[in-house]
Each structure stands twice: as structure tokens, then as C-alpha cells.
């Protein structure tokens, strides 16, 4: 098991947000975390990498419990995180953005170099020295993923990678994610766009009001319109 989360509870101030969330990601798997806005997808991701003020529960990554570790230590252990708001360093060039993400290679995880990433995202290669602030939304989304891959993670949390992108770019994004999977990366991706999730993922969890309410393979979910209707508001 690559990542195993169990009994995860999270809080923002006095508000209890996540209730006993449990999920697992196997090596080389792409797992989709589906749910509507405010259901707790981003909070789940932020909790896993330790970006919320208070959380408890077990987060076991590659056999180590990281639920007490600070964010940077978790990420250095090989758990990459791509936030939903992209959060590009707009004053830094593409290359400098990648430099911030750079971490040493680690055994058992696919290794990335700038050149390899430029092959994965050809658009970026043409703008190595362009400041992040002067890129379009689609280009920024590619850069934010590339930046995380520079850390040579073995698992990546992708928070709503298709949000706000044109259909064509979303298709490119799907191709990139499948390539990453082929390289051996495990991926946990949160999504609202079911069409997109269908293209890329093997298994799925559905989260609602901070609780996991369904889990199964993507094909199973296809045959359950009742579940989709009840929890995803499709």
C-alpha cells in the first residue's frame, strides 16, 4: 500500500470538517476523489500534507506514519502535492519555479529532470524564461504539476487539475496524467468533472460533508446512476 489514510479528522478553528476519512492508494494506481464543492476534497488533501491547523488520525505513507510530521518533511518523503489554486510563483521564471520544487532523486520513484518535464509539457519548453505571471491558466496548471514532479515524488495529490481549463487543455492534462502513471507514479486526484475522472482513474472514492460515502472501481460507478445522482449531483 502506497498511502493509507484512516480515521482522519480535521478542523478549521471550531469547525469540524472531516469525519473519520479513510482511503487507500496502491502503487501505480490513479484514484479519484470525487465530490461536490465544499464536500471536503481539498481539506482531505491539505490534511494529508499537514497544511491544516488541526488534524488527527493515521496517515501512513510508504509504511511510515506521517500524521505528526510537518508539511515539508512529508513532501520530502516523496508525497507531492499540487494545490487547486495553482499557486505559481508569478515573479519567478518557469525554470526558477521548477528549481523551487527540486528535490534529490529517491529510489523506487520515477525520476524527473527539467528536460523530461519539457517533453511531457511541450508548451513549457517554449517559455523557460517567462515569468509565471505572464502565462495562461492552462500553462500555469502544467507548470504547477511539473514543479511538484521536480521533487521526484512517488505519489502525487492532484487537486482539481481540470478546473477552469478549456476542454482541449483538459484533454492534454488527461494525457499527461496517464503518462505520469505509466512512469510508475501513484496519483490521488480530486475532481468534479466525471468525464475527466473517467478518462484517467482506476478507482474512486466519493466524499460528502466530510465523510467518505462510496468507494469502488470506476466501472462500478458507471453502473450506479443512483450513487452518482445522490452524492455527486450529476
Amino acid at each position: 500500500m502506497k498511502l493509507s489514510v484512516s480515521a482522519l479528522n480535521s478542523y478549521y478553528g471550531p469547525a469540524h470538517i472531516l469525519f473519520d476519512v479513510g482511503l487507500e492508494v496502491d502503487a501505480g494506481e490513479v484514484v479519484a476523489l470525487l465530490g461536490r464543492n465544499g464536500a471536503g476534497k481539498s481539506t482531505t488533501f491539505r490534511s494529508i500534507v499537514g497544511l491544516v491547523a488541526r488534524r488527527d488520525g493515521q496517515i501512513v505513507f510508504e509504511g511510515t506514519d506521517v500524521s505528526k510530521s510537518p508539511t515539508h518533511a512529508i513532501v520530502r518523503g516523496g508525497l507531492g502535492y499540487v494545490p487547486e489554486e495553482r499557486r505559481i510563483f508569478t515573479d519567478l521564471t518557469v525554470e526558477e519555479n521548477l528549481e523551487v520544487g527540486r528535490q534529490p532523486a529517491r529510489p523506487g520513484a520515477p525520476q524527473w529532470s527539467k528536460d523530461k518535464l519539457f517533453t511531457l509539457f511541450p508548451n513549457l519548453a517554449e517559455m523557460r524564461n517567462r515569468p509565471g505571471g505572464r502565462m495562461s491558466g492552462g500553462e500555469q496548471q502544467m507548470l504547477t504539476i511539473a514543479r511538484t514532479l521536480m521533487g521526484n515524488p512517488s505519489l502525487v495529490l492532484l487537486d482539481e487539475p481540470s478546473e477552469g481549463l478549456s476542454p482541449k487543455i483538459v484533454e492534454q492534462m488527461a494525457h499527461a496524467i496517464l503518462t505520469m502513471k505509466k512512469e510508475g507514479l501513484s496519483i490521488l486526484v480530486s475532481e468534479q468533472n466525471l468525464h475527466f475522472a473517467r478518462l484517467i482513474s482506476d478507482r474512486t472514492y466519493i466524499i460528502e460533508r466530510g465523510r467518505i460515502c462510496y468507494s469502488g472501481t470506476m466501472t462500478e460507478l458507471e453502473s450506479r446512476p443512483d450513487i452518482r445522482d445522490a452524492h455527486l449531483a450529476v
Binding site: 464543492n37 478546473e163 477552469g164
Partner: peptide, 11 residues
């Protein structure tokens, strides 16, 4: 401007 961005399909 992108009135439905970030919403569930039915919303």
C-alpha cells in the same frame, strides 16, 4: 465570469 466554476454538475 465563469459563473459555474467550481460547482457540481447539478448545481
Amino acid at each position: 465570469d465563469e459563473p459555474t466554476a467550481g460547482m457540481a454538475p447539478r448545481e
